[in-house]
Nucleic acid binder design. Sequence first.
DNA 1: GCTCAGATCGGCT
DNA 2: GCCGATCTGAGCA
Length: 201
Amino acid sequence: MSNILPLAFYQRPDPVQIARELLGKHLYTRIDGVLTGGRIVETEAYAHLNDQACHSHLGRYTARTKIMYEPGGVAYVYLIYGRYALFNIITNEAGKADAVLIRGLEPIEGIPEMLLRRGLPAVQRNLTAGPGLLTQALGITTKHYGTDLTGDTIWLEDHREVVPTDRIIASPRVGIDYAGADAALPWRFRLAGSKWVSPAK
DNA sequence: GCTCAGATCGGCT
DNA sequence: GCCGATCTGAGCA
């Protein structure tokens, strides 16, 4: 497809705006020669400035967050609880380490392969509804840390779907109570009525 | 060098 | 509803 989202989409300054716009876009991977993908239905924004929930806030710079300081349009994949890979898209320009976490995906392409990777017998909600699950289904692992999102391994496409503003639910992000007042920011975005949003409260 | 908690999920009570 | 799996990094000594 030629409607791959260009670097210019990611390198804009407002991760909250980008997180909203990513709803209804499609995420694909071609890993081990197998095409899998689906429609993004849930995201969260993380900003490096004034956001204690963000791994890069206040310029925190470690082996894990290094990639966040690259120019937007690369993958930030990290392991949580030693067990699940979470997939983020780095946004903004170099040195401004913003990110968008993908939390929910509606499976469309390569469903048999996704079932195999998840060890499930049939399509059900926990195939891709959750940030640690959709990475398994798509075959994304920490090996994909730093992958260029305009390449042929992981990429996003614009299918010209127009998502009406009143179908987007904004709410506080999940699992970041430690971030103090920033935990209340309504930076989690979901498509109303989608069964593929994560089950988290 | 040690301890503790985390942007999670699935299994068990 | 609670608990454990299992790795990274922060905070402290």
